[in-house]
Nucleic acid binder design. Structure first.
Lengths: 196, 196
DNA sequence: CACGTTTTTTACTCTGCATGAAATTCGAGC
DNA sequence: GCTCGAATTTCATGCAGAGTAAAAAACGTG
């Protein structure tokens, strides 16, 4: 057994928390619901976490980290001599895949952060910056290579683009359209939209 | 006095509800908080609404309606012979202005709908369709006029664009950047992004 | 200014949910 | 198959927050 039963239960709880968080938001996340999804009795959660907030905190942290690392990894796997604009397209694809199918973690984290109580949000501010930072760098490279529309404020444009990606979790329904179609549309829009 | 004191109090309550809703989400919206923002005692709310859900319901309805009508009006005011792509830019501007400064209603409605309990969401489905419908029509016209990238699925592209606009409420901080800068970036991205 | 009506307040109740504590089951080593 | 610690459950507590009732205040109109 690669990891103990306990570790697996713990992970189930965190996964369940992300699942509920994504659908119900911060305030709407009840431990009883998390427990049900995780197939555990609610008080059992306290064996692993000392409070509801601590659990949510971890779920969000895992999600933010995953969002960042999956994009980073996808970029790392790409040929480094690829034009930045193409690498940006890869990042778009990786991000959407993570957000929409890989698990509820990333989506839950990204969509929940704004609702968190100030203290908790503060705690994740750095992780959020790191997440945006990967993109920021990418856009800077696009700019360096002269592929960015000169009239466009890089920082603002990036946030607009990230918004488009993040909001997909709100409306995309796997039953009604393929993931690839969404990725394709997003990539086209970003390419054309930023192009010089 | 154009409208009675009572009507104004009622409106204050709905406004306050939108305000709280926007920041705390559906489940996190406490009547005590709404009351505080509205400068009213919590039970006074029950004079106007028979339950918390009814209040939230109305706040969302007002918001969705406002989001739709402000864009419609801006379009109606534009010269009708303007190319559709330019009218789309006008819609982008009107939408962002509404969302970011006009009041909390539109933003609250748009961002909260996905969290609502199923029954309530159902009740607003039509309003949401109407809201998207205005845009859908606009994009169709752009397509008719041959200004839409042929490789782009119109419906999907529209949702991606709307996402970009809606998400601005999440990150835009009036203290750190001008509204016009955001509008400008969004318009450029949309124009370039959709262009044939 | 008196009287009915509208609006607001004060003082509750009731319920759902996070959390606590003790009791119980499980599972690895002997 | 017994024992001890880890994992989990069952039962109980306390509080926050929705909702109610009835009194009080404000308002408007003769």
């Amino acid at each position: 057994m690669r990891d103990t039963k306990s570790a697996r239960t713990r992970r189930r709880v965190v996964d369940a928390a992300a699942h509920v968080l994504l659908r119900r938001g911060y305030a709407g996340t009840r431990l009883s619901d998390v427990a049900e999804v995780a197939q555990v009795q609610a008080p059992a959660i306290y064996y692993y976490f000392s409070s509801r907030d601590e659990l949510i905190d971890e779920a969000v942290a895992v999600g933010l980290d995953r969002a960042r690392s999956l994009v980073s990894e996808a970029l790392a796997a790409a040929p480094p001599d690829l034009p930045a604009i193409d690498r940006l397209a890869i990042a778009v694809s990786a991000h959407l895949r993570t957000l929409l199918t890989h698990s509820d973690h990333a989506a839950a984290a990204i969509r929940t952060v704004p609702q968190l109580p100030e203290a908790m949000r503060e705690r994740h501010r750095q992780a959020q910056r790191d997440y945006v930072g990967v993109w920021r760098e990418l856009v800077a490279q696009v700019q360096d290579e002269g592929d960015l529309d000169a009239g466009l404020a890089a920082g603002t444009a990036l946030m607009v683009v990230l918004g488009a990606l993040n909001w997909t979790a709100e409306w995309w329904d796997p039953a009604r359209g393929s993931l690839d179609a969404v990725i394709d549309a997003a990539q086209r829009l970003v390419r054309q939209g930023l192009a010089a």
